[in-house]
Design a protein around this nucleic acid. Structure first.
Lengths: 228, 228
DNA sequence: CAATCATTCAATTATTCGATTGAATACAGG
DNA sequence: CCTGTATTCAATCGAATAATTGAATGATTG
């Protein structure tokens, strides 16, 4: 008979939680849910998973206590369980960024312009935005914007940026944001706008972190991204 | 040919780090290494793993950037790579404690006396200890004490506590600590000493957290514990 | 209450992971 | 340079995990 010590039980429980985040698809699901509440089909489509597969992964996350589900009519809507879950993802990102060569290369390469321009802190943006000194630009897809966005932010998805430049006041400083520290959208938006002479900076992290910091979120229907 | 997007590469890299902490044995190894630097055989014996098995787990941790190794004569000594690794373990513990029923039961049950007495904060202990107002009691095994301990702490392993009560000044308040928030030693020491009329409290967390907070550690040879 | 839709369950298969064993490498000391 | 010790590597086997498929459940709508 295998008798288990309390310590083993504890370590196994911790390992269960870790296992839940130890798969790329589940991490992607978590990033999605960090933007806001979503049904199974919505996240399945967005991540390219089959509905059944997404459902199973979501249930693993639910068993680990990382996401919670509620029934809403015929939909089951999932979302991050709490801020601790977001914290765990951010901490995971920190470790990976410091220690895993592949991540470091991505950050410094594809995510260009990492240095050269300090991101705007949440506190600074909040203040300057209240004073009407900046244009806040949300470059995520419209449905994520709908799930929730920074107060007063205008939404121009990255793909439409070039054709909608007229909507941006060239005289004001722009602060762009997207899903989180590993989201490429805002990096690319900054690069594109700078090339056209706009004064642009990135917000540190993204909407999930903004929300987790307890700062106000505007919503008329919806969400953001998350690692580190 | 499978072409991988940067996003997939990133998520896979994050998942690799998560996988490294997704096994009870590796978590136990990390808790050991959080106490201080150790050779392969030392952690193997202490965790009950075969040397070869421990070596392989340690290498997985090393690949994930969670621990670092250096050669020291004929030994290879492993230790936690950095404070980010400790942070990750603590965050994992937080999520598990909030969300996993088994952990919650352990905390409230076996780890008795969780409530009723607030733990002493590091800041409070540091101050009162400098003023000579408290006896700091390290109840970990002597070899972990040797790897490093709180300044001025006396070391009485839990098993020897009853026979060495005379070494403790009954007039002074005692603060006991051990490996970390999930270490039972200090809980049991507090219960035992209280039953004998001593005034005792626990230090919040344990030695790894103390060290990570940048507070002074005394050492004449050696270590502590880590989750949450 | 039947029809429909969103989600979950169950069974299958391919892949990956963990532990064990025995051999190989690296270093220290004589 | 040889021997003993510490650690790692390589190969193996059994167990666990992931994705797929198709069927089952639960809830809304007519």
């Amino acid at each position: 008979m295998t008798s288990e010590t309390p310590k083993q039980v504890l370590l196994s429980a911790l390992a269960e939680v870790a296992k839940a985040i130890a798969h790329p698809h589940r991490l992607e699901l978590l990033e999605q849910l960090a933007q806001g509440e979503r049904g199974v089909e919505a996240v399945a489509e967005r991540t390219g998973l089959s509905v059944a597969n997404a459902s199973q992964h979501l249930q693993q996350l639910r068993r680990a206590g990382l996401v919670s589900a509620r029934r809403d009519g015929k939909f089951v809507r999932y979302r991050l369980a709490d801020d601790a879950a977001l914290d765990l993802l951010r901490t995971l990102g920190t470790v990976a960024e410091r220690n895993v060569a592949a991540v470091d290369r991505l950050i410094r390469g594809y995510f260009s312009e990492r240095d050269g321009h300090e991101p705007v802190t949440r506190e600074e943006l909040l203040e300057r935005s209240r004073l009407g000194l900046v244009t806040v630009l949300d470059v995520r897809p419209p449905d994520e914007y709908a799930l929730g966005h920074l107060p007063g932010a205008i939404n121009i998805p990255l793909l439409e940026l070039e054709s909608r430049l007229a909507e941006i006041d060239p005289a004001q400083e722009i602060v762009a944001y997207c899903r989180g520290p590993y989201c490429v959208l805002s990096y690319e938006a900054v690069a594109a706008l700078r090339a056209r002479g706009f004064s642009v900076r990135r917000l540190e992290d993204g909407l999930p972190e903004w929300r987790a910091a307890g700062l106000p979120v505007e919503t008329w229907a919806s969400g953001q991204s998350v690692f580190r």
